[in-house]
Design a protein around this nucleic acid. Structure first.
Lengths: 171, 171
DNA sequence: AGTACCATGTAAGCCGTTACATGATTCT
DNA sequence: AGAATCATGTAACGGCTTACATGGTACT
């Protein structure tokens, strides 16, 4: 995963110029399913990207906020990473680890954890449904609709699998 | 994700007593889709777990290898974590980040990256199919079969989605 | 005037990766 | 005898989280 934060920031700015504060929120919202970063990581990274001329300040706003945008060099570097750098496929998911270990629990505990997970997945699906519904008039270019659709399908598979496990352990 | 490594090691030892070396391999194989750890992290963690009396050395083998097993206290602590500790649902997936940013690429580049991903998912599915096929006589208790099934379903959804994107961008 | 939220930054410490280091056993 | 693999450990470095710190703006 080395250096991914750099491209995450570059990528979000390529979607839309933003302040560091806005990026922090986007990490929490749109990107929370695959990457996460706190403001304490984002601000220093923006400074580094600016020093490397991959982004630039395009506006100063209220409360001494700075709006950044990618430069041409930044766009080229983002493209290079997406297309030419071999992806690191490794993942880190505590939820995945828990799911992997759940068969070690006795039936009552197992069912309880599956139900906790199911409740969470259903919330997730509801949230994704809203994103999808609010997408025509949203600031998002509609090009990202398939990505939302993928999230929905993934969570649906997980939801159905959890329901099966709960049903099976109820016998 | 704080402290997850501890429970990953505890959980793997609860499945079967192992040496540090074997754990390293298991992280690379069975667990690579959700967690990963190098031997340089595993050996110190085993020492800490032993100091906390959550695991113990149950045998010395060739090449001064040590086989560890969970203690009763270790099993209780693992159960506590799985059932009572609120899961950290955050994930870290460079692949997810790439997928999220791919719509920024122009059609040719986009198709190329989708095809690269598709090739990888198909390898993954083939590997999972083998795991599933070799599962009746394997040392794994069959209780873990549903987890393998979930992996297959997830990858199948991703495969089909990638195929759709490739078809759509071919027009 | 006080509270809530917007907005940016730095420092300490933990976690994980890469690299360094050593020795035992098996196979050819 | 040499190479490959098994097996365990430590050290340096970088990335990420938590906590500390500060100030601006809007609302009541």
């Amino acid at each position: 995963m080395r250096m991914s934060l750099r491209y995450a920031v570059l990528g979000l700015l390529a979607r839309r110029p933003s302040t560091g504060y806005e990026l922090t929120q986007t990490f929490d919202r749109s990107l929370r399913s695959s990457w996460h970063a706190r403001h304490s990581q984002i601000y220093p990274e923006l400074a580094k990207l600016e020093a490397a001329a991959l982004v630039e300040v395009v506006g100063l706003g209220a409360r001494r906020s700075k709006t950044y945008a990618v430069t041409a060099a930044g766009r080229a570097e983002l493209r290079r990473w997406l297309v030419e750098v071999e992806p690191d496929r490794s993942q880190r998911s505590e939820s995945g680890l828990r799911l992997f270990l759940t068969p070690l629990l006795d039936p009552d505990d197992r069912q309880a954890t599956y139900e906790r997970d199911l409740a969470h997945v259903e919330l997730e699906l509801a949230a994704l449904g809203e994103v999808q519904a609010g997408m025509q008039n949203a600031p998002e270019p509609e090009a990202f609709a398939p990505q939302v659709e993928l999230g929905i399908r993934m969570n649906t598979v997980l939801r159905d699998w959890l329901r099966e496990q709960i049903k099976a352990s109820a016998t």
